[in-house]
Computed example of a mutant assay.
Amino acid sequence: MDEFLVGEIIPVPYMFAPEGTLYCDGQEYPVQLFQLLFALIGFTFGGNGSSTFRVPNLKGFEPNPNVHYVIVTDGMFPDRY
């Protein structure tokens, strides 16, 4: 996933989340496992306020039933200016 930026949301036509991504389904994840993604989105979408955070929930916003949104966890870290 080196061609994508961490935190980038992309549509995929698969029934699985490709390696280096997570479904955008509002799930909660440990900060320690996804530190780069957490550094960008923090607790914006929820979490327990210390050790877990949530990814955005885009279920129901897909352009068709065979497309799912994923968020990149393993890619290039975006520059901050």
Results as ranks from 00 to 15, higher is better:
Phe38Arg: 04
Gly26Met: 11
Met1Arg: 10
Gly7His: 07
Thr44Gly: 00
Pro56Asn: 09
Met1Lys: 09
Val72Arg: 01
Asp79Leu: 11
Thr21Gln: 04
Ser51Glu: 07
Ser50Asp: 15
His68Gln: 12
Arg54His: 01
Lys59Arg: 15
Leu58Pro: 02
Thr52Leu: 02
Val31Met: 06
Arg54Pro: 04
Ala17Tyr: 00
His68Glu: 11
Lys59Ala: 07
Pro63Ala: 14
Asp79Glu: 14
Ser51Ala: 08
Ser50Arg: 14
Tyr29Val: 14
Pro63Val: 13
Asp2Gln: 14
Gly42Leu: 05
Ile9Glu: 03
Val31Ser: 10
Val12His: 06
Gln32Phe: 08
Val67Met: 09
Leu40Asp: 05
Pro65Ile: 11
Pro13Gln: 14
Val12Ala: 04
Pro63His: 13
Val31Asp: 08
Asn57Pro: 01
Phe77Thr: 07
Val6Ser: 03
Leu22Asp: 11
Ser50Val: 15
Tyr69Asp: 04
Asn66Lys: 07
Phe16His: 13
Asp79Trp: 11
Glu28Arg: 09
Val72Gly: 03
Arg80Ile: 12
Phe43Gly: 01
Pro78Tyr: 00
Met15Glu: 14
Phe45Cys: 07
Gln35Ala: 10
Phe38Glu: 04
Leu58Val: 03
Val55Ala: 08
Pro13Ser: 15
Lys59Ser: 14
Asn57Met: 07
Met76Lys: 11
Gly47Met: 02
Pro56Tyr: 08
Pro63Ile: 13
Met1Gln: 11
Ala39Trp: 00
Glu19Val: 11
Gly20Ala: 07
Val55Phe: 00
Val6Lys: 00
Gln27Met: 06
Leu40Gly: 10
Gln32His: 13
Phe43Ala: 06
Ala39Cys: 06
Asp2Phe: 11
Gly49Ala: 09
Tyr69Val: 05
Ser50Leu: 15
Ser50His: 14
Val31Ala: 10
Leu22Ala: 06
Pro11Cys: 08
Gly42Thr: 01
Leu36Val: 06
Gln27Lys: 12
Phe43Met: 13
Met15Gln: 13
Glu62Cys: 09
His68Cys: 08
Leu5Gly: 05
Asp25Glu: 12
His68Ser: 13
Val6His: 01
Phe77Val: 12
Ala17Asp: 05
Leu5Pro: 01
Met15Leu: 12
Val67Leu: 07
Arg54Leu: 00
Gln35Tyr: 00
Phe45Pro: 02
Leu5Ser: 02
Phe45Tyr: 15
Leu37Ala: 12
Gly42Pro: 00
Gly49His: 05
Val70Tyr: 09
Leu33Val: 13
Gly47Gln: 10
Ile41Gln: 04
Tyr23Met: 02
Leu40Lys: 12
Pro18Met: 00
Glu28Phe: 02
Pro18Phe: 06
Gly49Arg: 07
Arg54Ala: 07
Leu22Val: 06
Pro78Asn: 07
Asp74Ser: 13
Tyr29Asn: 05
Leu37Arg: 08
Asp25Asn: 15
Gln35Arg: 06
Pro13Val: 04
Asp25Gln: 09
Phe4His: 15
Phe38Pro: 01
Asn66Trp: 05
Asn64Ile: 09
Ala17Ser: 15
Gln27Thr: 09
Glu3His: 14
Pro65Leu: 10
Asp2Cys: 03
Leu36Thr: 08
Asn57Ala: 03
Val6Arg: 00
